[in-house]
């Protein structure tokens, strides 16, 4: 595991305090397996239908695997059936739908839950195809650690709903997130915001970048182990903005 420099530790501390201020995406990605897709010309229809759904930021279809990966805007809460209907309208058959939800792990009543940030929604976590409904011990240990540290985690899996609105999420993979907040100077309009967001999100380790023109800052979320504040600052500077770690020393 890479040693996180002191600089970004301070940034993380700052962010934990500021976390409540922005509405964030609860579900960041939806991935749909599409059956019946055999040539490039047909892909366009699926992309068009999915892009029309409220809250969809980007659609990427991989023809080889038949997977349509939908990236959602901040704050979007999708209804799975909307995506399935979109694929049907395009003339194809939707199969498994997976979501990537960001939240914190909670242990309750001997079950592990993922509590989505910004909402009351909770998912009961489990691993499908396992011999029993109990979580495999190593996996449970990792989740308990995350619950203890209250770190943000992104979990990708197949959701299903229970009665009374409760939901379950079978876990395919998960990765803890770390946040870094940087002040950014030099943005003059929304186009700068869009450009900077695109440049930051192009980086492999960046999960999501929220850029605010009014607050002159950006909050970047990334997979914990690969987060490197200096490289992020350099990327922003290369884009002809000027970035620095927020120098406000807030009290704990």
């Amino acid at each position: 595991m890479k040693k996180i420099p002191l600089l970004s530790l301070k940034a993380i501390v700052l962010v934990l305090l500021l976390l409540g201020t922005q509405a964030r995406a609860e579900v960041s990605h939806v991935s749909i397996a599409v059956d019946g897709l055999g040539c490039p010309f047909c892909v366009y229809g699926i992309e068009k239908q999915l892009k029309n759904i409220d809250g969809v930021k980007k659609v990427d279809v991989e023809l080889k695997t038949g997977q349509a990966l939908v990236t959602l805007e901040n704050g979007a809460s999708p209804d799975i059936s909307t995506f399935q209907n979109a694929v049907k309208k395009a003339g194809f058959t939707p199969r498994t739908v997976q979501i990537t939800a960001v939240g914190k792990v909670q242990a309750k009543n001997d079950k592990m839950h993922l509590s989505l940030r910004g909402s009351d929604e909770k998912y009961v976590l489990f691993v499908k195809d396992s011999a029993s409904a109990d979580l495999p011990p190593e996996f449970k240990g990792q989740l308990l650690k995350l619950a203890e540290s209250q770190s943000l985690v992104a979990i990708t899996g197949t959701p299903h709903s229970h009665a009374q609105g409760q939901s379950g999420l079978s876990v395919e993979r998960f990765s803890p997130l770390a946040s870094v907040e940087l002040s950014v100077d030099g943005m003059v309009c929304e186009r700068c915001v869009a450009r900077l967001t695109q440049i930051l999100e192009k980086r492999k380790e960046v999960y999501q970048a929220s850029v605010s023109l009014a607050d002159k800052r950006t909050v970047i979320e990334a997979v914990d182990a690969t987060l490197n504040t200096e490289e992020l600052i350099e990327t922003i500077n290369e884009a002809e903005f000027s970035a620095s770690v927020d120098s406000d020393e807030t009290k704990q």
Partner: peptide
């Protein structure tokens, strides 16, 4: 006209509204 053969008809789908 949709994706498919050149001188033959095809049953391949056309997206609704496309």
């Amino acid at each position: 006209a949709n994706a498919g053969p050149i001188t033959t008809n095809t049953a391949l789908p056309v997206n609704e509204g496309e």
